Amino acid sequence: MSEQPVVVERRVTPLELFFDLVFVFSLTQVTALMAADPTWLGLLRGMAVLTVLWWAWVAYVWIGTTTDAEDGVARIVMLAAMGAMFLTALAAPGAFGQLGDVAGGSRDQALLFGVTYFAVRLAHVVLFRVIGRDKPDVGAAVARLAPGLLLGSALILVAAFLPPGWPRGLLWAVAIAVDVGAPLVAGTKGWELSPHHFAERHGLVIIIALGESLVALGVGVSDQLYDVRTMIAVLVGFASVACLWWLYFDVVAIAAERRLASVDVEQRNRLARDSFNYFHLPMVAGIVLLALGLKKSFVDIDSELKLVASFALFGGVALYLLGHLLFRKRNMGSWNLQRTVIMLLLLACVPLGVAVPAWVSLVTLMSVLLALVTYETLAFAPWRRHLRAAHEDHHAGEH
């Protein structure tokens, strides 16, 4: 017989929400990095920085879902890690150092990023070793994961001493491969997690990323005349962000949480790692790209977008939907046809962005997303109502 689900439910703590505020600032810094260098190389650098910041955040989600991170020594270590994470975020725009006239910061910033990122990852290992004293299985899991985790962050630190350009970029690529691949090599045996807590933390980070898009939208128009056309364009951009919220939280988040709680321990650990740790990254990356696209769109809403900005606007949302498709495939074993069609349609709209005024691109994006939300809401209304009602009844029973 298969092992029965063991569910230890935890609540998201104020300390974890405090940590998430630091991650908000990190996302803002990634957008700033790409906005200062709106080239394909700039986008690649931004996505690289986002990836390592994401894996640092993910590590602390596992801590919060395994133990009470506000208890005793764990709280002090968490606060120290948050301070290091804040410094890492401050240095993020200069993580790759200076290359010619490209805005990328100095070697000092790259070194600060490397040192503080290593400190964040080291604190993660220390915290889990402390937890492992009372939970031998967790301690064994950390022992398997720690070498890859520390090696990846150490390589980013070493990269700061290399010349800016391809030598540093190559070592970053190796570091990311090690960092991202370590959980696959180490496996998930021995870990413990609370399904509701784990799903809620990832849902909160989606909201955080969407909030960054709204910040970029607001900043983009802060120095413009607040006329009727501008305000309408702002509402169009807001509607697009709201559609992304709807596409995740209306049913996807609910179904994923229920699935996570329904399987046995080993399956739950693998499912959490794959569908939440790995497949939420393209969602967050897509939202950050959208933030860049919105910011560039409001530089002049009557002018065409540059190709990179158009890709960020349309391609960012397409990447967000790709994350949804992979998320559903891993959780439910099925593929979402309508979201696949919309993803491809958005990619096809990238050339449109360089041929029409930015406001037309914004209206196009909003129209496509509204059509998707409307179709899914109407076509799957009975199933949607049943799922949401069952979810509400379950949580009502818990209280």
Rank of each mutant, 00 (worst) to 15 (best):
residue 59 A to C: 03
residue 113 F to R: 10
residue 328 R to N: 13
residue 20 D to V: 02
residue 69 A to M: 14
residue 198 F to P: 02
residue 73 V to A: 15
residue 106 S to W: 03
residue 175 A to D: 03
residue 178 V to S: 03
residue 333 G to I: 04
residue 32 A to S: 13
residue 156 I to D: 04
residue 367 S to Q: 02
residue 195 P to S: 04
residue 393 D to W: 01
residue 89 A to C: 05
residue 296 K to L: 13
residue 91 A to V: 01
residue 271 L to S: 06
residue 153 S to G: 13
residue 151 L to K: 06
residue 43 L to T: 05
residue 111 L to C: 04
residue 202 H to M: 01
residue 181 G to T: 03
residue 8 V to M: 10
residue 372 L to W: 01
residue 346 L to G: 04
residue 88 T to G: 02
residue 196 H to M: 00
residue 112 L to I: 13
residue 77 V to R: 10
residue 103 A to W: 00
residue 320 Y to H: 08
residue 299 V to P: 00
residue 290 L to R: 01
residue 124 H to A: 14
residue 355 A to Q: 14
residue 276 F to C: 05
residue 354 V to F: 07
residue 105 G to W: 12
residue 31 T to F: 07
residue 286 G to C: 03
residue 200 E to D: 13
residue 298 F to H: 12
residue 251 V to I: 13
residue 76 I to D: 13
residue 229 R to H: 14
residue 100 G to N: 10
residue 339 R to G: 01
residue 386 H to A: 15
residue 332 M to S: 13
residue 391 H to T: 11
residue 245 W to H: 10
residue 178 V to A: 05
residue 276 F to S: 06
residue 128 F to N: 15
residue 319 L to T: 12
residue 157 L to M: 09
residue 216 A to F: 09
residue 15 L to G: 05
residue 158 V to T: 08
residue 310 S to D: 04
residue 89 A to I: 04
residue 77 V to M: 05
residue 306 K to S: 15
residue 331 N to L: 14
residue 180 V to H: 02
residue 150 L to T: 07
residue 323 G to A: 07
residue 246 W to I: 07
residue 51 T to A: 15
residue 355 A to M: 14
residue 63 I to C: 06
residue 290 L to Q: 03
residue 253 A to N: 14
residue 388 R to V: 15
residue 248 Y to L: 06
residue 121 R to T: 08
residue 304 E to M: 13
residue 31 T to L: 15
residue 65 T to M: 04
residue 101 D to M: 10
residue 254 I to A: 03
residue 177 A to Q: 01
residue 136 P to C: 07
residue 254 I to S: 02
residue 295 K to H: 12
residue 148 G to E: 04
residue 261 A to N: 00
residue 155 L to C: 03
residue 23 F to W: 11
residue 390 A to F: 01
residue 139 G to K: 06
residue 322 L to T: 09
residue 165 G to L: 09
residue 136 P to H: 09
residue 210 L to P: 02
residue 92 A to K: 11
residue 252 V to D: 02
residue 35 A to Q: 08
residue 234 V to L: 15
residue 37 D to M: 07
residue 351 P to I: 14
residue 132 G to L: 05
residue 62 W to A: 01
residue 217 L to T: 06
residue 103 A to H: 13
residue 204 L to P: 04
residue 69 A to R: 11
residue 367 S to E: 02
residue 43 L to E: 05
